[in-house]
Amino acid sequence: MESTSPSYSGHRYPVEVISHCVWLYFRFPLSFREVEELMLQRGVVVSYETVRRWCLKFGQTYADALRRRQPRTGDKWHLDEVFIKVNGERKYLWRAVDQDGNVLDILVQGRRDKAAARRFLRRLLKRTRAVPRVIVTDKLRSYGAAHREVMPSVEHRSHKGLNNRAENSHQPTRQRERAMKGFRSAGAAQRFLSAFSGISPHFRPRRHMMAATGYRAEMTVRFAIWEQVTGAAGPPTAA
């Protein structure tokens, strides 16, 4: 699927530098200052505040472009929720992935009751424009109550052991949460995790199922897709 590259009008740094900084931040558990240091080692002088603005401006755009290039959404959805700390308060991160591990959507909410589950299911249907054959959840009763209202014709399987796909999908988020020492606000968490869930999985193929040559070939393809969606010709060179 072809898409128009983001506009970099008004930016004095080349697209290769901007996209590389955004890639570093969302792919690895790095702070903005650490990205600044890595770029300085390569001879590119850019402030951490500039990196922050780039990630805020382009992160979601890149993530959306990568999602548009994903294969057709699977018909088996795994839903799960996990608590996160936002400014010292407990919030819940709701996540849905399909049977292939593709992240369908995430949503930060303050509760995990029926209303929260219903809101997430309706958001999923709207964003994916698809109806699954089956949804798989843990034993949280909120899912069953919301399922009967929003998608009663869809099969619902509720079992703790069946939902490892969604639970495993939370692991990179946990890693970033620790590196960032939590999130400052629910809005900031939603913005970061929405972009993160679109960019990070693109560079995390199921390596344990690939030989080394196959993994390198797959990553070459994925880097080429990244360059296409960002409009970059390649990695930045030392200034």
Rank of each mutant, 00 (worst) to 15 (best):
M1R: 14
S3G: 14
P6D: 00
S7W: 00
Y8W: 03
S9V: 10
G10R: 00
G10N: 02
Y13R: 04
E16G: 03
V17E: 03
V17Q: 01
I18V: 06
S19W: 02
H20C: 06
C21P: 11
V22Q: 00
V22N: 01
F26S: 00
R27Y: 03
F28V: 02
P29V: 03
P29H: 02
L30F: 06
E37L: 09
S47C: 07
W54V: 03
L56S: 11
Q60Y: 10
T61S: 11
Y62K: 03
A63C: 07
D64V: 08
T73W: 13
K76A: 12
E81S: 05
E81I: 01
I84W: 03
K85G: 03
V86Q: 01
G88K: 03
E89D: 12
E89Y: 08
W94E: 12
R95I: 10
D100Y: 14
N102W: 15
R111V: 14
R111G: 12
K114I: 15
A116N: 04
A116Q: 06
A116I: 10
A117W: 06
R118C: 13
R119Q: 15
R119G: 15
L121A: 05
L124M: 02
V131L: 08
V131F: 04
P132M: 07
R133K: 09
V134I: 11
K139D: 13
S142G: 15
S142H: 02
G144W: 00
R148V: 04
R148M: 06
E149M: 07
V150P: 00
S153D: 08
S153N: 04
H156P: 00
R157T: 04
K160F: 06
K160G: 07
G161V: 02
L162P: 04
S169K: 00
H170N: 07
T173E: 07
G182D: 01
R184C: 09
A186R: 10
A188I: 08
A189R: 05
Q190M: 13
R191S: 14
R191I: 12
A195P: 11
F203N: 08
R204Y: 06
R206D: 15
M209S: 15
M209C: 13
A212P: 13
A212Y: 09
A212E: 12
G214R: 12
Y215F: 09
R216I: 03
A217K: 13
E218T: 13
T220H: 12
V221D: 14
V221K: 13
V221N: 13
R222D: 05
R222M: 03
R222K: 10
I225S: 08
E227R: 12
G231W: 02
G231C: 02
G231L: 03
P236R: 03
P236M: 02
A239F: 12
